[in-house]
């Protein structure tokens, strides 16, 4: 997998693009993609090219949410394909993230 992050408006809008399989091996890259940005930033996860999520990926998404302020976090998940959306739904993530 590759993780790329970009920011605009001085780091207040962070966009993270996830491609391919998103699993345990990506723990360093994923963490580095957001660690440098402030908690109150608005995050957008672009999953258009994501093919697969395992449970550690779901755990990492929850850690991103924690980093972004927990219940105050503003995280949009965009472009997820039906299989990915299904996994997010089973994990009840629609209550924690804004899944479009």
């Amino acid at each position: 997998m590759t993780v790329k992050s970009m920011n605009s408006d001085n780091g207040s809008n962070v966009s993270i693009v996830i491609e391919g399989r998103f699993d345990f091996n990506d723990h360093l890259a994923f963490r580095e993609s957001y660690q440098q940005f402030l908690p109150n930033a608005r995050y957008t996860l672009d999953m258009t090219q994501a093919e697969y999520l395992d449970s550690s990926a779901l755990g990492m998404l929850l850690l991103l949410r924690e980093h972004a302020g927990g219940d105050k976090a503003q995280i949009d998940v965009i472009g997820a394909r039906p299989e990915i959306k299904n996994i997010l739904a089973i994990a009840n993530f629609q209550k924690l993230f804004h899944i479009a």
Binding site: H27, G59, L63
Partner: peptide
């Protein structure tokens, strides 16, 4: 499932 994902999250935190 919730517990399982929560465990994954904690594990990743340890990681």
């Amino acid at each position: 499932i919730e517990q399982f994902i929560s465990t994954s999250k904690d594990s990743m935190k340890v990681m």
